[in-house]
Amino acid sequence: MSERINRRFTITELHKAGHRPCEIFNLLKHRGFKRSTVYGVIKRYSKAPSLADKKRSGGPRTARTKSMVKALRDRIRRNPRRQQKKLAIQLNVSPSTIKMALKSDLGVRAMRRGVCHMLTTKQKKNRVIRCRGLLKRHAGESYKNILFTDEKIFTVEEKFNRQNDRIYAKRKSDIPIAQRKSNRSHHLGSVMVWLGVSLVGKADLYFVPQGVKVREKNYLDEVLEPIVKPIGSTLFKNRDWTFQQDSAPAHGAKVVQRWLHDNVPGFISSQQWPSASPDLNPLDYGIWSKLEIMACSKSHTSVESLKQSLLKAWGDYPIESVRAAIDGWPSRLRSCVKAKGGNFEP
């Protein structure tokens, strides 16, 4: 008796015993039975009480044969990065045959490739050592008192996702060109934004003058003194907290590290934070992209318009999303250690 007949027999026997279809599915789903299979067999059995296959019409397969499916499987195993049109040409079948074979015979689906940070062997070792240090230092719930900070440049252009942005119409000509195209310019107006977030709350959004990120004196005068220093009383209400920043040149300068030692209760030094690690900063992996979508859903006519949109978007940004990103930070440190400092899936 074939596997297909065995499955039908199991379903019909349970049905004869008085079990309802939903009960049969719950009993068999751990064995790989699909809900549609259970309901389909019962419906078919009620019309014709036979377990045998129905008589099929048409001739034998000529394109989606076993040998073709095997050749397709071997190609996918050697290199999963494939194009269906090229596979169809290589195997001398139609693109629709390839599509059906991938879905029905091989049970695979197309997945979007992502991008990740390029890491050297030295950087990977550095990430492991520093992630372990951060896990040890911020064990338990002490990470909840960290102020995570970062800077990002926003432009007046619309945030455009080439793969997912779609427009719907019967004909392309029905849609105005302004809606069909996303404008791009060689001379962009832009602004640098500084943000700080913690589980306690969101710091105010600040627009940073150009050059601050690479010049320690500007960083001290424009960010640390006027923005970071008051946060201890405004956001943390004079409780103990820890300041975090990435490994940008201005951040690692001796004068900056000395200022932090003298002016904040605790901080993660440039020797403690993993370099080349945007996947470990909640702002990078969980906040910036969403904020950009909110603020730059359409292009702006001026930098001032962009600034007003960013301020409104940050004001509307839900604190629950901020806290969710920060709560995922310890598990990301552990995932980085498990991946031996390489790229990882959170």
Rank of each mutant, 00 (worst) to 15 (best):
I5R: 03
R8T: 02
L14M: 13
H15R: 02
G18I: 01
G18S: 03
L27I: 04
K29Q: 06
F33K: 00
F33R: 00
S36F: 01
Y39E: 13
Y39F: 13
V41I: 12
V41W: 00
K43F: 07
K47N: 13
K55D: 03
R56N: 03
S57H: 07
P60D: 04
R64V: 09
M68K: 10
A71I: 01
A71Q: 12
I76H: 10
R78G: 15
N79S: 15
P80Q: 07
P80T: 05
Q83F: 08
I89N: 05
I89Y: 02
P95F: 10
T97I: 13
T97V: 15
I98R: 07
M100L: 11
D105F: 05
R109L: 05
A110F: 04
A110P: 07
R112Y: 08
G114K: 13
H117F: 11
T121D: 14
K125Y: 11
R127L: 11
R127M: 12
V128E: 07
R132N: 15
G133R: 12
K136I: 10
E141D: 14
F148K: 09
F148T: 03
D150K: 09
N161I: 08
D165V: 09
R166L: 15
I167G: 06
I167Y: 06
D174M: 07
P176V: 04
I177Y: 04
I177F: 04
I177L: 13
A178T: 12
K181S: 07
R184A: 08
V193F: 02
L195P: 02
L199S: 10
D204N: 09
L205Q: 00
Y206G: 00
V212Q: 01
K213Q: 13
R215F: 02
K217T: 11
Y219E: 07
L220I: 08
V223R: 08
E225H: 05
P226W: 08
I227K: 02
K229T: 09
L235C: 06
L235P: 06
F236L: 04
F236C: 04
K237I: 06
Q245Y: 00
S247C: 15
Q257I: 06
Q257L: 09
W259N: 03
D262V: 06
D262W: 07
I268H: 06
Q271R: 12
Q272G: 04
Q272V: 09
P274C: 03
A276P: 04
N281Q: 09
P282Y: 10
S289M: 02
S289R: 03
M294P: 00
A295H: 04
A295Y: 03
A313I: 04
D316N: 12
V322I: 15
A324D: 12
I326C: 11
G328W: 02
W329Y: 06
P330E: 10
P330H: 10
R334A: 15
G342N: 13
G342I: 01
F344Y: 15
E345M: 14
P346Q: 12
